[in-house]
């Protein structure tokens, strides 16, 4: 498997397609820098605030926050790395030659998946470090340890999230013989997840379930349904989890019932600790992780028993 891993990793980093990834990184870094500049200018900054984290979470009027950028465009990296993983080998006629060598079939899949995972980890780490580094340069002081912990958590979350998209794209590459079909299906699911579910599907279904929004209770119900329905989408899960991890002021995820909201009102708005934030988003991470795992399981069952004709 190591042989396949190193070859694929070399392929990923050397391919022209990687330029797209680099382009996404550069834009992401510039994006962060722009927001940072606005934050510093705003002079509303007090020293006890988490300025490094705010580089990722605040929006600047025109631009949504950096974490949104990663949630929206990041999947493209995963898709670019995986959509032709298996079907291009098949089309080239190398798959049957590859599988005629004394290796296990899952080595092919695992090697490719790991190479993709490492590639996107490199990309994400580079991007986050570049933003933090530039922020240090602009502000002249280094992040606090809690910020480092939160950023690390965010990094892990992003890797899991992109790994889901990599798994999805590779699954498509097994099920669709044609690389173009596979890419289109992956991109369709990407649009559905990042865009359509939260904007159209979930609100429409919530309207159906709670037709009248008059009383306060109905409002809460409607919001609740809408939230839970949009949580079908991994992107929604990622956004919620990322917000919570990077912003210590987010003290809960989801819609509060009326009574609990009243309770919260009485509490003082104090930031929560990193471990508490992690507790809040643990379910989100678990769900994205298990979605990725089930996709891999589906690919396995299909690929392992398939006929490989040249």
């Amino acid at each position: 498997m190591t042989a396949i891993f190193w070859k694929e990793l070399g392929d990923h980093l050397g391919r022209r397609r990687f330029l797209l990834t680099l382009f996404l990184i550069v834009v992401g870094v510039l994006w962060g820098l722009f927001i940072l500049a606005r934050e510093v200018d705003g002079s509303s900054v007090t020293s006890n605030e988490f300025l490094f984290l705010r580089t990722f979470t605040s929006s600047s009027g025109v631009l949504p926050p950096v974490l949104f950028y990663i949630g929206f465009f990041g999947p493209l990296i995963g898709i670019a790395l995986g959509f032709d993983a298996i079907n291009s080998e098949r089309a080239q006629g190398t798959l049957s030659r590859l599988l005629a060598q004394p290796i296990h079939r899952d080595d092919v899949f695992n090697g490719k998946f790991l190479a993709g995972l490492v590639t996107l980890t490199i990309v994400l780490v580079a991007m986050i470090l570049a933003i933090v580094g530039l922020a240090m340069f602009v502000m002249g002081y280094s992040p606090r340890s809690e910020e480092v912990v939160r950023l690390f958590g965010f990094g892990v979350l992003s890797v899991v999230y992109l790994a889901f998209w990599l798994a999805l794209a590779m699954t498509c590459s097994i099920f669709f013989r044609n690389a173009v079909t596979s890419a289109l299906v992956s991109l369709g699911l990407w649009l559905l997840s990042t865009f359509l579910i939260a904007l159209l599907v979930a609100p429409a279904l919530a309207d159906l379930i709670v037709p009248a929004i008059e009383t306060a209770q109905q409002k809460v119900d409607h919001a609740n349904w809408q939230l839970w329905l949009s949580r079908i989408s991994p992107s929604q899960l990622f956004n919620e989890a990322a917000q919570t991890l990077l912003n210590p002021d987010v003290r809960f995820t989801g819609v509060l019932g009326l009574e609990r909201a009243a309770q919260f009102d009485r509490l003082e708005a104090t930031p929560i600790s990193a471990s508490q934030s992690l507790q809040l988003v643990w379910p989100h991470i678990t769900v994205v992780f298990s979605l990725a795992a089930s996709l891999i399981a589906v690919s396995y069952t299909k690929f392992m028993r398939e006929e490989i004709r040249s």
């Binding site: 080239q92 006629g93 190398t94 030659r97 005629a100 004394p102 290796i103 296990h104 040249s310």
Partner: peptide
Amino acid sequence: PTAVKRQVGYLPESVGFY
């Protein structure tokens, strides 16, 4: 399969390379 493929060379009908 690996025990077989260790000792058997196979040239497919339309052989492909990278």
